[in-house]
Amino acid sequence: MTVKPDWLRVKAPQWQRVGNVKEILRDLSLNTVCEEASCPNIGECFNAGTATFLIMGPACTRACPYCDIDFEKKPQALDPTEPTRLAQAVSRMRLNHVVITSVNRDDLEDGGASQFVRCIEAVRLQSPQTTIELLIPDLCGNWKALEIILQAQPEVLNHNTETVPRLYRRVRPQGNYERTIELLKRSREIEPRVYTKSGIMVGLGETDTEIRQVMEDLRGVDCDILTIGQYLQPTAKHLGVNEFIHPDRFAAWKAFGEEIGFLQVVSSPLTRSSYHAEQVRKLMELYPRTNGS
């Protein structure tokens, strides 16, 4: 495995704070993508008292070769108590902004849309001031399911592009680039008050030109927020890192993204899809969507 450069070192967390968050998660039997996907920022986020909740899991129905979430276990029936337990965690952690994501549940007719809605309703009941960001799968192109989710009006709808079209077959074999772009396009059309967001991994063999084209494609469907981060190989059995990208290139992509009209671009080696996601609250103050504009 290639040696990581200095700019990918993370600060040691304050384990007392991390332990408090883990205690809440274990007490309520909740999963987080922070743990299941081996996120390098787990210490920083747990230390700050935040987490990205992983619902309907931890078993996934897809086997993306870059992802550390388990796909070998059989998915279980949806737990009707999960939304309430998640809402209790949000309340106990006193979160101002919560990110809720899920494994792919291609075995479900609506891809899990109804469970996302139940989670939104439960969080709003217990923590009405908390803003909600959903990071959803592609729902196999079930646009009715997407409409169901958007009718619940999360503040942010996130769906990751992950990589450039040329690498989809290798990186995201069960995904479809055109379907991803279409999901983001339809999201803005169905509920224009909801901010749309997407994320890209780099270091898998893509070119700068390809990255910029993806960014332009996302702006072409009026995507508001973009995250760009370095892909890191979770284990030896996962896709290898083709290149560790220097921070200067991340800065250049951020500048380009702002130039072509993204409201917010978070671009750095350690950026992940929900990294510093709470910053969207400031964006909402600057660019309010109360009238659907």
Rank of each mutant, 00 (worst) to 15 (best):
K282S: 15
M93C: 06
Q151I: 12
E216S: 13
W143D: 15
N96R: 13
R124Q: 09
P58G: 04
A252L: 13
S127P: 15
V265T: 00
E147N: 12
L135N: 01
M215H: 01
V103K: 04
A252V: 11
R62A: 11
V99S: 04
K11I: 15
N104M: 06
E72L: 13
L95K: 05
V117K: 05
M201R: 04
D106V: 06
I181Q: 09
Q264T: 11
F256G: 07
T131N: 04
C119P: 00
P80A: 04
D222R: 09
P173F: 14
G19Y: 05
V266G: 15
R219L: 08
K282Q: 13
G112N: 10
F116M: 10
N47A: 14
P58M: 10
L135W: 00
L184Q: 11
D27I: 14
T235V: 02
W253F: 06
A89R: 05
H246F: 10
P13S: 00
A255V: 10
T235I: 00
F71R: 12
P192Q: 01
A12T: 11
M56P: 06
V103L: 08
D106P: 12
G220D: 06
R124F: 08
E258W: 11
Q76D: 13
Y287G: 09
E191A: 09
R249W: 15
F46Q: 04
Q233R: 05
P128G: 01
T84K: 14
Y66R: 08
L78V: 09
I225Y: 06
T209F: 13
A48R: 07
S29L: 14
I228H: 01
P83S: 01
P40R: 12
E258G: 08
Y287W: 13
M56Q: 02
D68I: 09
Y177S: 04
T32I: 00
P154V: 02
F53V: 01
R188H: 07
P165K: 13
V98Q: 03
G220L: 07
M201Q: 03
I228F: 07
P80R: 03
S268G: 05
L135Y: 00
R170Y: 10
R272G: 04
V171W: 01
S102E: 11
L184C: 08
E82V: 01
I245T: 04
V21A: 06
R186S: 03
I149M: 03
L30F: 02
A12N: 14
S91A: 14
V3E: 13
V3S: 14
N104V: 09
L86G: 05
V90F: 06
S268K: 12
E155C: 10
L270W: 08
P13A: 00
G240D: 12
S38F: 15
P58L: 08
M284P: 15
R281D: 09
T130Q: 01
G220W: 05
R94G: 14
Y66G: 01
E182G: 14
G292S: 04
L150R: 02
S91E: 13
S91I: 15
I245N: 03
A87V: 03
I148S: 14
E36R: 10
K254N: 07
G220Y: 07
K22Y: 15
F250R: 03
W143C: 15
D248R: 11
V156S: 06
E243C: 14
N142Y: 04
R272C: 05
A37G: 08
